[in-house]
């Protein structure tokens, strides 16, 4: 039986990753006002990149069957590199699925479709190259660290601590960057009022690219972390997570960073508290929560209500 402390840790670590992933959606949403449905596929890619970078070999089914990189990096290095690779892919998604529509000032509805299309392409590319099978990161990915630690009498999996620690680190870094740096402030300015920001000389196209890059990085890191903790179940692995992260995002309030963190932790904890007899229903927890909250508070937990001025 898990102790309450273990459950708490489980919940918090998963929740922190949800938050991280959700923030990726927020960045793009706050700048462009649209949801990027390819985000789940970028997350999947992050996991695969991490797997390959730490020296994992491709299975027997894809076009790349049997292939492996000639080097094996430690997880600490592989994860940020996978994040960067995911950021590149995210830029590609922007170029293919967003920029042509933006040029034509298309209605926002179309972005849902094209980004989903980009996701379909990515997922099936993975399948084509690496097969449909699952992969798991080797047990010794974390080097010499013990599998579990004893914290106050409870056994806590080291992986959980890594998830929590890395997520916290990235979240803090992201906040510092958004609040402290020129780029971060410019991004916030564009998200608050694109027209005014343009008048102030902020390059909104550059900001859009920046938001895609950072959101891809966050998705890639989240993918790598989840891959480490529960193994990669196949090319479709990120879709469910992507949807849940979207739920987390809306639950917290679209565009609100603290909201996304709060909602991520709430959902992580709520899922961890589902008794094991009902574990089949775990995937519905986030959505049931979200549904209930939307009906009571349409702007989400920490979002600002929309006002239409007449």
């Amino acid at each position: 039986m898990d102790t309450l402390l273990q459950i708490l840790f489980n919940g918090l670590s998963v929740g922190a990753v949800y938050a991280l992933f959700a923030l990726g959606y927020t960045l793009v949403f706050s700048v462009l006002g649209v949801i990027n449905f390819a985000q789940g596929a970028v997350f999947t890619l992050g996991a695969y990149f991490t797997y390959l970078l730490i020296g994992g070999a491709v299975g027997a089914n894809g076009l790349l069957a049997g292939l492996a990189l000639p080097f094996a990096l430690p997880f600490w290095l592989a994860l940020p590199l996978a994040g960067l690779a995911a950021a590149l892919v995210s830029l590609l998604v922007e170029a293919v699925a967003f920029r042509p529509l933006r040029r034509r000032r298309a209605e926002p509805l179309l972005y849902l479709i094209t980004s989903l299309g980009a996701g379909v392409i990515l997922v099936n590319l993975i399948q084509l190259l690496m097969g449909a099978e699952g992969y798991s990161l080797p047990a010794d990915s974390l080097g010499a660290l013990p599998v579990a630690l004893n914290l106050g009498g409870a056994q806590v999996r080291t992986v959980q601590l890594v998830l929590l620690g890395v997520s916290a680190l990235v979240l803090i870094g992201l906040t510092l960057w958004l609040e402290g740096s020129r780029g971060g402030k410019a991004l916030q300015a564009v998200s608050e009022d694109a027209t005014t920001a343009r008048l102030l000389g902020i390059d909104s196209d550059g900001m859009i690219l920046l938001s895609f890059a950072v959101s891809g990085f966050l998705a890639g890191i989240s993918g790598g972390l989840v891959g480490l903790s529960i193994s990669i179940t196949g090319p479709y692995f990120g879709i469910g997570f992507g949807l849940k992260a979207l739920g987390v995002l809306v639950l917290g309030g679209l565009g609100s960073v603290p909201g996304a963190v709060l909602a991520g932790l709430i959902i992580g904890l709520a899922e961890a508290l589902v008794p094991s007899e009902l574990s089949g229903y775990k995937d519905a927890v986030a959505f049931a929560f979200l549904f209930a909250v939307l009906l009571l508070r349409p702007q989400g937990l920490l979002g600002r209500p929309q006002v239409t001025k007449v």
Partner: peptide, 10 residues
């Protein structure tokens, strides 16, 4: 199929 969906709306 994905390409069709990406390119169609453009």
């Amino acid at each position: 199929y994905g390409l069709v969906i990406v390119v169609g709306p453009v």
